[in-house]
Design a protein around this nucleic acid. Structure first.
Lengths: 220, 220
DNA sequence: AATAACATCGAACACTCGTTCGAATTAATC
DNA sequence: GATTAATTCGAACGAGTGTTCGATGTTATT
C-alpha cells in the first residue's frame, strides 16, 4: 500500500521539523541540544538521526523549506498583476501573513541566518538573494514610474525588510492587531514614505549633521 | 600614584569587552567560547575571570554599557529642542550613527537580546523599554500635533526600530553611503510615511485581504 | 626590604555536546 | 510464515564547554 501524497516517513519528518523550529525559535539554534528535540518529540537521541544527518542539516531543512514556500507563494500571488504598486502591496501582505502564521520558522530564518555554514549556507543564501532582488526590482520599477528621487534603492529595500522581519521581536498576536491591519500599517508607512516626496521642506532644516563628533561606546 | 579618570584595570577591561564584542558579533554569543576570547586577547583562560565573573556577565557588561551610552547621548542631544519632529530626526541620526560607529556592540545588543537571562536580562530590558518608550512618546507627540490618523503607534515605533536595527544585516560602510546619508534616507522614508496621509486613495484599492487562505510552511 | 594588594596563569574538574554503532523491534513484501 | 526492508533505540565515545583553585609573578605601600 503506497500513500498518495505524503508518506508516513515524510509526515514524521515534518513533525520533527516543526517541533525543532519551535525550540530553535524559543532558545536559539546553538543553545538547543538534540536532547531537547529528543525530549520534545518523544523520540530517542539516535532515532532522530534517521530523519536528518546532522543538527546543521536539520536547520537547513527548516530554512530551505521556509524560504521556498514564501518565495513561491509570493511569485504566484503577483503573477498577472500589472501595477507595480499593487504588486508590492501583495508582496508585503504575503510576507507578513506568512511571518505571523509561521512565526517559529520565520524567526529561525531571520535570526539564525548565520548559524548555517558551508554549502547549506550558500544554498539558502541564494534563495534569499533571489527573494530580495525580486523586491528590490519592484521598488526600482516603482521608483522609475513615480519618479522617486533621493532615495537609495538598497537602503529602501532593506528598510522594508527591516520593518517586516523585525516583527518577531515584538509582534504578539494576542496583543496586537491582526495581520491585515499590520500589513496595512506597514505598507502605508513604507510606501507613502518611499513615494512621498511630500515631507514639508520646513522640516528639512538642519541638513548638516547635528552630531559634534563620532561617538564610541568605549572611551578611546 | 592614582590615575585620573581611568585606571589601568578599567582600560584592560574595556579592551576585553571590545574584543569580546567583536567575536560575539562575528560568531554569535553561544558559539563563542571563553577560549576564543582568551586567544584573541592573548590572556589566559583563568586570567580573564579576573575581569568578569561569568560569560553571561561579560555579555551583560557589553549590552549594559552600550545601552546606557546610546540612551544618554540621545537624551543629551534632544534636551532643549522643542519641535518633536526635529527631536525625532536627532534620535534617528544618533541611533544610526552610534550603530555604525559601534557595529559590533550594537549587533550584540540587537542579536543577543535573548541570550541573556535572569536579573541581567531584567536590567538590560528595563533600559531598553525606557529607550523604546522615549521614541514611542515622541511619535505620539508628533501624531497628535500633526493629526496623524490610522497608524498604530506600536506598529509605527517598532517599524522604525526595525528599519534602524536591521542594518547590521546588510550595512557595509565600504559599499553603502555614509551614516548621514543613511540617516537622511531612513528618516525621510519613515517620517514622511508616518506623517504622510498623502498616499493616493487610488492606490488604496483592494482593502480586503488578497490571500485566499492562511498559508502554512508545512502541510497540514 | 618586608608586606600587602593586585594580576596572571597551568592544570584540572564536572558536565554537556553531537554523533555513531550494533542490536532490537516493527512493517512490508514475497 | 519466512525474508527483507524500514524504523527505533540504549549505550557509549571523544571532543569541547564554563568555571575553579592554588600557586606564582608583579606592582604599590609601608
Amino acid at each position: 500500500m503506497s500513500n498518495d501524497s505524503q508518506s508516513k516517513h515524510d509526515q514524521k519528518l515534518v513533525h520533527v521539523l516543526k517541533t525543532s523550529a519551535a525550540i530553535f525559535a524559543e532558545k536559539g539554534y546553538h543553545s538547543t541540544s538534540i536532547r531537547d528535540i529528543s525530549r520534545a518529540t518523544k523520540m530517542s537521541l539516535a532515532g532522530l538521526y534517521y530523519y536528518f544527518a546532522s543538527k546543521e542539516e536539520l536547520l537547513f531543512l527548516i530554512q530551505d523549506h521556509c524560504f521556498s514556500t514564501v518565495t513561491m507563494d509570493c511569485k504566484r500571488l503577483i503573477a498577472g498583476v500589472e501595477d507595480p504598486i499593487q504588486k508590492l502591496k501583495l508582496v508585503v501582505e504575503n510576507h507578513l501573513n506568512y511571518f505571523v502564521k509561521n512565526m517559529n520558522e520565520m524567526k529561525v530564518l531571520s535570526h539564525e541566518a548565520n548559524s548555517i555554514t558551508g554549502d547549506w549556507f550558500k544554498k539558502v543564501n541564494s534563495k534569499k538573494r533571489q527573494y530580495v532582488d525580486l523586491v528590490k526590482n519592484l521598488l526600482g520599477e516603482i521608483a522609475r514610474s513615480q519618479e522617486v528621487k533621493g532615495i537609495d534603492l538598497r537602503v529602501a529595500t532593506f528598510s522594508l525588510f527591516g520593518m517586516m522581519n523585525w516583527i518577531y521581536n515584538w509582534y504578539d498576536p494576542r496583543k496586537d492587531a491582526d495581520v491585515t491591519e499590520l500589513a496595512r500599517n506597514i505598507t502605508r508607512i513604507f510606501l507613502s514614505g518611499f513615494l512621498g516626496s511630500v515631507l514639508p521642506e520646513a522640516a528639512e532644516t538642519g541638513r548638516e549633521s547635528h552630531l559634534e563628533r563620532p561617538v564610541s561606546v568605549w572611551p578611546q
